[in-house]
Amino acid sequence: MSDMTTLSPVAASTARIGRWRWQETAFWLLVVASYFLFSDRYLILTEIAWLALFALSLDLILGYAGIVSLGHAAFFGVGAYGVGLLAKHGIIEEPVLALLAAGLMAMALGFVTSFLVIRGTDLSRLMVTLGIALLLRELANRFSDITGGFDGLQGFTIAPVLGLFEFDIFGRTGFVYCTVVLFVLFLAARRLVNSPFGLSLRAIHNNRLRAEAVGIPVDRRLIAVYTVSAFYAGVAGALFTQTTALASLDVFAFERSADLLLILVIGGGGYLYGGLIGAVVFKILQEIFSSITPQYWLFWIGLVFVVIVLVGRERMRRWARVAPDFLLRRLGLSRGVGGGGSRGGEP
């Protein structure tokens, strides 16, 4: 961390990058607004919130450090079962503390497995991470006397948050709780990626050899960010268990990791909001399609993916930028709202 004090140009640069933009304020205001606007949909909002945190954790390693993973559910699952077991056996009852503890468990696993992941090709990383998650799933199934096996870990209750706010049937507490956790961890991630540490990750992502040549300890940086990411994923898993009061084998499932990757691809990696936006889009699409056609929603969501890629995200973004102007003009309000603030670096 000594780089920060000695290299003032870097400090200046990070300060510039890290400046808070109006779009970001708008985004979080929307999140707050959703509390009032969709008061009967707290449950799905809660799901979006922990999913967003989960996607954020993948963004840290994929979008910033370029480590692909198809087994991020491993950490999610450890967090989920961690919290469940802590609550069930009454070891740590208070949710926030349990959350931290579960996050740390996932973090420990992340640190250990990071050594397997930092070397290798993209494809072998995909498969090693996937293999780890599937192994954990089998372990959880095998030790069913601890985990409840296929039936899942059930029959425990989650104590009120900070001893004050009980989880209610409407999901209000759950939503506020998840959103606050998401926001706090988002701020931490934002701080992290805009620090010299984050810059060095981008350098590694862009060109590993060159990064090595300028003296960045590549392996150590990758291990560090992988470990942090595991913590985030563990917390997301813990939130999942705390808001649903159950944990089952599918927390480790391949589908969970795969969906996560899709979410990040939809939202775009490397600017922190990608996972958040992707989670919102993904869940809402799923919800809309599956309530219209519970049997065949998979088809329509697949179609959306196909169209997204065929049209191309760049073009969509351009449309998104032009659309408000166009609409306003249509309505005879040609004020030309500046919709074009450039977002952070796209991969």
């Binding site: 993209d122 795969a258 990757l261 899709l262 990040l264 691809v265 939809i266 990696g269 049997q295 065949y296 929603w297 998979l298 088809f299 329509w300 969501i301 697949g302 179609l303 959306v304 993916f305 196909v306 997204i308 890629v309 065929l310 991969p347």
Partner: peptide
């Protein structure tokens, strides 16, 4: 990019499955 290929082909599978 590979990730776009992933998104596209998974979307294709979803459609095929349904």
């Amino acid at each position: 990019s590979e990730l776009e290929q992933v998104l596209f082909t998974i979307g294709f599978v979803f459609m095929a499955v349904a």
